[in-house]
Simulated scan of single mutants.
Amino acid sequence: MNKKLTKSNERIISGVVGGIAEYFNIDKTLLRVIYAAATVFTGIFPLIILYIIAALIMPNN
């Protein structure tokens, strides 16, 4: 089966992190907490810019 990386239907903002969690079969809440912590500890802007780019590029489910 060919998996595709798409946004999640169970979205908080745009479904990017949820879609990544579904693709790698990881708990969505855990990945969201890790992403939020990484965003705070890396100076906020780099991961926010990455999230916006991913939200624009990733197709909807």
Rank of each mutant, 00 (worst) to 15 (best):
T39P: 00
I52W: 05
Y35D: 00
A55F: 06
L31M: 12
I34G: 11
F41A: 11
Y23V: 01
M58T: 06
M58W: 07
A38E: 00
G15K: 10
I34L: 15
N25D: 13
T42W: 09
A36L: 14
F24S: 08
V33C: 11
V17Y: 08
A36Y: 08
I20S: 09
V17C: 09
A54M: 13
I48G: 02
L30E: 06
N25F: 00
V40Q: 12
R32W: 09
D27W: 11
V40F: 14
Y23S: 02
V40R: 12
A38S: 04
N25K: 06
G15H: 08
R32G: 14
I57T: 14
L50P: 00
F24G: 10
D27S: 14
V16K: 07
G18R: 02
L31T: 02
P46R: 08
V40W: 13
F24T: 06
L30Y: 05
E22V: 07
A38K: 06
I53R: 07
T42H: 10
I13D: 14
I52T: 03
P46N: 09
I57D: 03
Y35H: 05
L31I: 08
I44K: 05
I44T: 04
K28P: 05
A55W: 09
N60K: 13
I53T: 02
A54L: 13
I13H: 14
I57P: 07
K28C: 04
A38P: 00
L30V: 05
I44M: 12
L50W: 03
A38L: 13
N60E: 07
Y23D: 01
V40Y: 14
G43K: 12
I20V: 15
K28Y: 01
I26T: 05
F41H: 09
L56H: 11
A55T: 09
I20N: 04
N60T: 05
N60C: 01
M58F: 11
L50G: 07
N25H: 04
V17I: 15
A37L: 15
I52Y: 07
I57N: 09
V33F: 11
A37S: 13
P59V: 04
A38D: 00
A37E: 08
